[in-house]
Amino acid sequence: MNGLRIAAKVQPARQTIIFLHGLGDTGSGWGFLAQYLQQRDPTTFQHTNFVFPNAPEVHVTANGGALMPAWFDILEWDSSFSKVDTDGFMNSLNAIEKMVKQEIDKGIKPEQIIIGGFSQGAALALASSVTLPWRVAGVVALSGFCYIPGILKQHKNDLNVKTPLFHGHGDMDPVVSISLGLNAKKFYQDTCGIQDYELKIYNGMAHSTVPEELDDLTAFLKKCLSL
């Protein structure tokens, strides 16, 4: 899978942050995050690899079949997700597993790897918290939601039930409503047993990010990676 890869400024690399973009975006769209973290804490993230993969081009049904980067098809704009692209979602989950394995093969310990994402990418990051075959350092979901809960219950394991999870969400999000964020927390915390699930709600934030959220994200990453 191609995308934007930013190698640690100081070798050898000791940590990796993998971050998945949202619908219609590319890995480069979130490349600013690496620059932000490296400039904000120049010595803190100097041994950190950053991976911003590109989603495949998909004909998105709910957008009139338009071809765009998507981790899975959106069959209709329905917050209840009555129709879902199970195959596309599971294929992307498998791709995340391969990305993590690539980092492990390079010498990065799984407990020094963060999985994160925004919107569609956040839905996958959340799902990876119950499907990955390794315990990772932490999981980040920005404006995330729960997708295919029934399937995830069949595939879940308990390796990351104690792994810290940070979920940032705006209370004015018109794309992924705050109710979907609350439902995600309920599913992963109550049904899947995630013990350290922090949902932080940002007043006035739409389907985007704000400086306060980036501040909280930075603190979370430093805590998870013991930086």
Results as ranks from 00 to 15, higher is better:
168 G>W: 00
191 T>N: 11
168 G>T: 01
34 A>W: 04
89 F>A: 13
75 L>E: 12
40 R>K: 03
115 I>K: 09
17 I>M: 03
151 I>R: 15
124 L>V: 13
200 K>P: 06
78 D>R: 11
131 T>A: 12
62 A>R: 02
172 M>S: 15
12 P>G: 11
146 C>F: 08
129 S>T: 05
141 A>P: 06
8 A>C: 02
152 L>I: 11
182 L>Y: 10
67 L>R: 08
115 I>Y: 10
25 D>P: 07
126 L>K: 05
126 L>E: 07
190 D>I: 07
179 S>W: 10
127 A>W: 02
64 G>I: 08
55 A>L: 09
214 L>N: 00
30 W>S: 08
10 V>P: 11
161 V>H: 08
187 F>C: 08
109 K>A: 13
27 G>D: 04
79 S>W: 15
18 I>C: 06
187 F>V: 13
150 G>T: 12
189 Q>G: 06
53 P>N: 02
128 S>A: 12
113 I>G: 06
129 S>K: 02
35 Q>A: 11
110 P>L: 01
89 F>K: 05
180 L>F: 01
173 D>M: 00
17 I>A: 02
121 G>D: 06
71 W>A: 04
223 K>D: 11
16 T>Q: 08
112 Q>M: 01
81 F>N: 11
203 N>M: 12
130 V>K: 01
6 I>C: 10
110 P>F: 05
215 D>I: 04
135 R>F: 09
18 I>W: 00
175 V>Y: 09
133 P>A: 14
187 F>L: 07
58 V>A: 07
178 I>N: 04
129 S>V: 09
78 D>V: 09
56 P>W: 11
105 D>W: 12
125 A>T: 07
59 H>P: 07
128 S>W: 04
199 L>M: 12
141 A>S: 02
179 S>T: 11
148 I>L: 09
88 G>N: 00
50 F>L: 09
203 N>L: 15
84 V>K: 04
112 Q>F: 04
71 W>I: 00
76 E>S: 12
45 F>Q: 05
219 A>G: 11
31 G>Q: 11
52 F>K: 05
8 A>S: 14
70 A>C: 09
207 H>Q: 09
210 V>C: 15
78 D>P: 13
50 F>D: 11
193 G>K: 08
147 Y>M: 04
172 M>D: 12
69 P>Y: 15
111 E>I: 03
115 I>P: 07
25 D>R: 13
16 T>R: 06
